[in-house]
Design a protein around this nucleic acid. Sequence first.
DNA 1: TCTTCCCCATGACAGATGTCACGGGGAAGT
DNA 2: ACTTCCCCGTGACATCTGTCATGGGGAAGA
Lengths: 201, 201
Amino acid sequence: MIRILLAEDQALVRGALAALLRLESDLAIVAEVARGDAVVPTALATHPDIALLDIEMPGGGGLAAARALHAQLPACRIIMVTTFGRSGYLRQAMEGGAVGFLLKDAPPSDLVAAIHRVHAGGKVVDPELAMTALSAGPNPLTDRERAVLAAALDGGSIAVIAARIALAEGTVRNHLSLAMHKLGAQNRMEAARRAEQQGWL
Amino acid sequence: MIRILLAEDQALVRGALAALLRLESDLAIVAEVARGDAVVPTALATHPDIALLDIEMPGGGGLAAARALHAQLPACRIIMVTTFGRSGYLRQAMEGGAVGFLLKDAPPSDLVAAIHRVHAGGKVVDPELAMTALSAGPNPLTDRERAVLAAALDGGSIAVIAARIALAEGTVRNHLSLAMHKLGAQNRMEAARRAEQQGWL
DNA sequence: TCTTCCCCATGACAGATGTCACGGGGAAGT
DNA sequence: ACTTCCCCGTGACATCTGTCATGGGGAAGA
């Protein structure tokens, strides 16, 4: 019996995924959580063999949860299950200890097969996504460039961004300008969107 | 036996929702589609009592599908099932003939209860979402304002937006400026994000 | 010890954005 | 027929954005 922990913030989707997996006689859902920061405490209490983690959740998100879970319960194998095939997400997931990475637009049979494969010691990544990630290269942005781009996503003015991350407006302009140059963007919003699309924020 | 058509673009989520609903002995999944424009043809062939429609799908999306379905198969009751509780979505859904509107962060039991209630002739909307929608008021934006805001979402320059929707740059500025004023936004990106958040695009 | 990079900040300046006035055409409502 | 609103567009101008130069501090690596 393969013990599974399921982390997904949308209750309907989480319940539906649990229902789907319970159809398999050799799978047992031992825990369901809605937040990233609930993953490790719950895993320590329930000892899952496999954790299925969404990425975009409250409480620090799935990538932080994966890193923490891998550090504290290395025997638990981690599969990310997410909406967005962002190469930065894939890279961060791998670096965080995940051995599987599935998109939610895969058919349900792919999820079941992935669980078995990972439980047998294997790894699962969509090959096309892996190729995309490899060609994208590593994240070229510094910590501060990422911070100003993330702050720029809401569309606020330079003054608003500067206030939010406690920097001078000129400093924000400089970071944004460098980031725009690295991403080949025409303005800060294009840059912020590209970085987000790549999973680099 | 209640016949159900399910429209959701993510295969894993669609399969999981179908699995969840098949646990109920009085529900039958008669069709699953991944695109908005497949809803009506499939409904005409399978005669569902209830259609569960996601909103953000390829092929025109769930709101257009709801309008078309209501026009061509008025006996089929429509429940929107979506990630975003945007008041514009709720309003458009109601105007399009939907009698139910659920968010994906509701528990699975809410979905099952909603199906039964709608099948019995009732309506289902999250009360908090209904209140938010009422307080938001109708969409204040003209067609052209919405078009320029939608084009602005990608972060392109005025020239890019103008080229995309075949208008002069000065005209784009004027529409953007008026839209920004209506939405109380400081720049076009704030305006575009607010309109999107409200479901007005 | 020196070099490189990141981060912080200021200042000058060119280009882009946003505001406003103005004017015309068309459609819908009174 | 007149009014109102939407849509289109130009032009002038104030403000904001983005670029670039410059300089200093700190940390890490050679």
